[in-house]
Amino acid sequence: MSKISDSVLQPGCELRRVYDGFWRYAIYLFGAISFIILLLIALFIFREGYPAFQKIGIWQFISGLRWDVSDQAYGILPMIIGSTYVTIGALLISVPLGIFTAVFLTDVAPQMMRSIIRPAIELLVGIPSVVYGLVGMLMLVPIIRQSGHGSGDSVLAASIVLAVMVLPTIVSITEDSIIAVPNAYREGALSLGATRWQMIWHVVLPAAKSGIIASIVLGMGRAIGETMAMIMVIGNSIIIPDSIFSPARTLTGTLALELKYAAGLHWNALFATGVVLFVFILILNSFGFLMLRGKNK
């Protein structure tokens, strides 16, 4: 009976149910789009990179010391070491600075300072990476050059530029995880007679540990992925850097610098480099998100 009255009283009724059903499936498709893109990216770079792994050998490719296009020699170890050095250098600066800044924002700073520094850090996120590269190139590199250590384009310059770029990631995630520590922890520590610093150092920061580790891991992902700013200050020589004043080249820099002119095995080798980056970042970020989720439980 209800069926009859529906169609009699509300002529549009059935049509809107059809719409509803159609859009349900359309929305499922929209939902899957990110995963589809992820699969496409994996598919394309693996497909183009595979011949390089096949011809050169995965291990020789990763541990090879020479990258020489004219000689068809493709080993990415110098770039892996270059990327590793600048990342470690950046984290050595930005992790302590970021954690103390986060503590400053949550526990130390007066309200006025907070309302200046928070927007300032948000602004740091938004500044284009080429602007960082430019300032590094014009300000930092000449200072290093004048100190008498080569051309100035160096692992040191790249690390400092990168440290500033990673800082907002570390500050904001660390700050969130410090705020998430229950107040009872703080009250407990203070009531036992701890100073506020003892409370932060022995109670709050350990409780926020997984969030802090996550911030470091995600910051690391950002550091490894940075491309243009690195090209601008690191010198791009394909050598294994022997000091912090030595030039170097990053994995991402190689891709940007050579992709447009590559053909044949060179092309495949660049995509194979992309595969290495892709897989590494995927593992790193999964670990980072795992830590963040652990915190929320």
């Binding site: 899957a32 990216i41 992925g225 891709l255 970042i281 995927l282 980072g288």
Partner: peptide, 25 residues
Amino acid sequence: KMVRFGVESLAGIPSIVFGLFGFAL
């Protein structure tokens, strides 16, 4: 779970890897 994994992973992939993909495709 697959959708969430897709969104989270895509967010972390470096710009230049997207560039590599965009160039090839």
